[in-house]
């Protein structure tokens, strides 16, 4: 097993919330990647296998194999591209069956199927101390993750398109209206004017565009294709309004969501009732929900 983190994990005090944080425990034989300064602070024996050529803000990335069990601070590749490379290289070079990536708060891009094969969505009292709000927020992310896949016959030709906007005609032809993205009001107007009802957005699906499309008379006829759920930057209200009006949305790459985990304890020490939280969450989501403070193996 190889492990890394896109944020900083395992430090005694969280740098964002200034509250205490659990340690990262590395088992003997595990491969791990962290920056040099944290590597040298660890108190167990490990063999350095690789040092990244390039420097990051925190120093050079070290990949090592644990020769003993121990704890350390984990801070690995933080951008999507180097994370992709990390997964590829680590599984190619070392006897590793699975690469685990610890995510970071509100960062969905490492969970894109373009990077990682599967994901576990984690949430908890840190997000909100109100169960209703917490469930609704999780439900929204869950719904975007579970958006259906783009039909097979149209998926293939769209796969290699990573820029601009595309229109798909009635007879399945892909046309390029020549718009770079749909972010500014001008660009959104262009999309409304020139694109038909079936639109592929390889980049960011902005709240503005989704809102504008929802306000259209024939919103019910619209079918939106996005690259994957992590490209949807829309507010829950807009997202649901679009779907309520009959609009459809699908993603090119559909992630494999394994489970949802909740932590009932907030960094400030506030604790939700575990059973109530899990059961509410379970009712709202059609997937296994675990309380990470109370996992029975």
């Amino acid at each position: 097993m190889a492990i890394t983190s896109v944020g900083i994990d395992g430090e005694a005090i969280d740098r964002v919330t200034a509250t205490s944080k659990p340690e990262v425990l590395i088992e003997k034989g595990m491969y791990f990647t962290t920056v040099g300064s944290f590597y040298l602070q660890k108190r167990f024996t490990a063999e350095i296998c690789h040092v990244e050529k390039s420097q990051t803000v925190l120093g050079k990335m070290i990949t090592a194999r644990a020769l003993e069990r121990g704890t350390l601070v984990l801070a690995g590749p933080s951008d999507t591209l180097s994370l992709q490379r990390w997964i590829h290289n680590t599984s190619a070079k070392y006897p590793v069956d699975i690469c685990l990536v610890d995510g970071a708060v509100s960062r969905l891009s490492p969970a894109s199927p373009a990077v990682t094969e599967s994901m576990v969505l984690t949430t908890g009292a840190a997000f909100s101390a109100n169960i209703k709000t917490l469930v609704a927020g999780t439900r929204f992310v869950y719904d975007t993750i579970q958006l259906p896949a783009v039909p097979e016959e149209i998926r293939k030709p769209l796969e290699n398109i990573t820029k601009g906007i595309r229109t798909i005609t009635e007879d399945g032809q892909i046309e390029d209206p020549g718009i770079d993205s749909a972010l500014t009001p001008d660009q959104i107007r262009q999309v409304l004017d020139t694109c038909g009802n079936r639109i592929y957005i390889p980049g960011v699906l902005s709240n503005g565009l989704l809102k504008a499309l929802t306000e259209r008379k024939e919103a019910g006829k619209i079918c939106l294709y996005v690259r994957d759920f992590s490209r949807i930057f829309a507010e829950p209200a807009t997202f649901y309004a679009f779907l309520r009006k009959g609009g459809r949305m699908a993603q090119l790459l559909r992630p494999n969501l394994l489970a949802v985990c909740v932590n009932p304890v907030s960094p400030e020490g506030y604790c939700l009732r575990s059973e109530e939280l899990v059961s509410h969450m379970q009712d709202a989501l059609n997937i296994s929900v675990y309380d990470i403070k109370n996992i029975k193996t």
Binding site: G36, Y39, I48, V51, K60, I62
Partner: peptide, 11 residues
């Protein structure tokens, strides 16, 4: 030298 520097020299 630290451990990382020793690794670099071996490499």
């Amino acid at each position: 030298l630290d451990e990382i520097e020793l690794f670099e020299l071996k490499y």
